[in-house]
Structure formats: C-alpha cells, structure tokens
C-alpha cells in the first residue's frame, strides 16, 4: 500500500500535524497497518520536496522550509494544488491487480506439490485449521464492532461512525480473503483426491490408495421425509 498516497488523501481533508496524520491513518484503518513516526515524517519530507505538500505557513511571510526537525513538530502540513490533483488521480485509478503479491502459502503449496515426499493433504489440513481460526476471530471482532455501533445508535453521525464503517469494511475484507483461502484449500484437496482416484483406477498403478466413494448419496433419504415433517 502506498503510504504516500494515504497520507496525501488525509491531508486533502484538512491541514494536519505529522503526529495527527499518523493517528488518523491508524484509526481509520483499524490499526491494521501501523505506521511509525519516522516513516510518516520521512514520507512527508519527500512530499514537501516534490512540492505535493507544504507547511501551512508556507506562502505566508517569513515561511520556513518543511524538513528540519523543529518544523516537523510544530507545523501543520497541507496539500498543494499539484498534490490535490494527484490524490484525485489516485481515487480515479484502479489498483493494479496484475502483479500478485508474494504470498508464502501460495509458494509453499506450489513447492509442496512438486517436492517429493511432502504430505500435501496434511499441509492443507493444518492451514485450513489456521485460516478458519483467523476467520473466526475476524468474525468475532466484526460482531463485536457491529454490536458496539448499534449500541451507540444512529445519532452519532460524522467522523466516528465513518471510522466505524471503515473498520467494519476492513474486517469484511479480511473475512473475504480468509474465505477465499479456505475455498482454495478445499479446491486443492478435491483435486488431490481426484488425482489419487484416477491413479488408483489405472490397473497398473494400484498403489493402495482406497477407492473414493464420494457419490452424491446424502440428502436423498432426507429429502422425501423433509417435506411435511421437518419444522
């Protein structure tokens, strides 16, 4: 994630002190991406250098430069017109998805199916437990956040409810990502099972893998009984 553009998006709202930028960024993203102070000031320093951001006193008489230590603590920063245009471009431009993030699990499984002697099924199971655990925790956090939002009620409009929504949507994102991972793991398991089955069907390669019996058996007996009986 571009911290640079995140900071600029915040400054588009109003001029802020450096520590304020950090606070706002963290509170709006639920603390999922903590920033350290140094990171914030370094980034702001570069933005000032590139004339995307200026100190709020710049342009006034006797203005100071924006990157010495004193200025950092005491100055508020604001977007320049160029900076504002850049933020506008950011909102309008889709986030590129053609460069996949390097994901350890993806790499691990790609290696697991190619390296001999690795029990891929076990890896899938262990990971599924972990992903399900994370998914459950996100769900608990979200249920808790939603209850808190309801308890506050609709009267408290404005910044706080906006941040609550951001936090809730962020948890949704984690939920959907974890769910996608679960689906992918299930898919791997099914494909492995199918591959094992087709191996065992070939007479020459009878490697002792038990024949799978995943016929669509369930639900048949229940279906008929259900209609009148199952309230």
């Amino acid at each position: 994630m571009s911290i640079r553009l995140g900071i600029m998006a915040l400054l588009a709202e109003e001029p802020m002190y450096g520590y304020q930028v950090r606070q706002e960024f963290e509170s709006r993203t639920g603390g999922t991406w903590p920033l350290n102070v140094g990171q914030v000031y370094t980034t702001i320093g570069r933005l000032v250098r590139d004339r995307l951001v200026e100190t709020a006193s710049q342009g006034e008489a006797g203005h100071r430069e924006g990157d010495d230590a004193d200025t950092r603590e005491t100055e508020r920063y604001r977007l320049t017109a160029t900076g504002r245009a850049e933020v506008g471009r950011w909102w309008r431009t889709p986030v590129r998805r053609d460069v996949p993030a390097r994901d350890e699990l993806t790499i691990k499984l790609a290696l697991a199916v190619t390296v001999p002697g690795v029990d891929v099924g076990a890896i899938v199971q262990i990971q599924r437990n972990e992903t399900m655990r994370a998914l459950r925790e996100y769900t608990l956090l979200k249920a808790r956040a939603d209850r808190a939002a309801h308890a506050v009620g609709g009267s408290d409009a404005g910044a706080s409810s906006g941040n609550d929504l951001a936090w809730s949507l962020l948890l949704d994102n984690l939920v959907f990502m974890a769910e996608a991972e679960m689906r992918w793991l299930d898919h791997i398991e099914s494909r492995l099972a199918r591959a094992a089955r087709s191996r065992s069907m070939r007479p020459a390669a009878s490697d002792g893998v038990p024949r799978d019996t995943s016929a669509p058996a369930s639900g048949v007996a229940g279906g008929a009984a259900r209609a009148g009986d199952a309230w």
């Binding site: 603390g31 199971q125 399900m132 925790e137 996100y138 956090l141």
Partner: peptide, 21 residues
C-alpha cells in the same frame, strides 16, 4: 469428506490481540 470426519477445529477461545487496536 466421504462420510468421515477428516478434521475438526478446536473450540474458539477468547479473541487474541489480533490487530493492533
């Protein structure tokens, strides 16, 4: 899977400090 329990997650405990805030 195929009529057998292949896996069962443990009961959920308390939510750990998952995120910073």
């Amino acid at each position: 899977r195929d009529g057998r329990v292949v896996d069962a997650t443990r009961p959920a405990g308390d939510v750990t400090e998952l995120l910073v805030t």
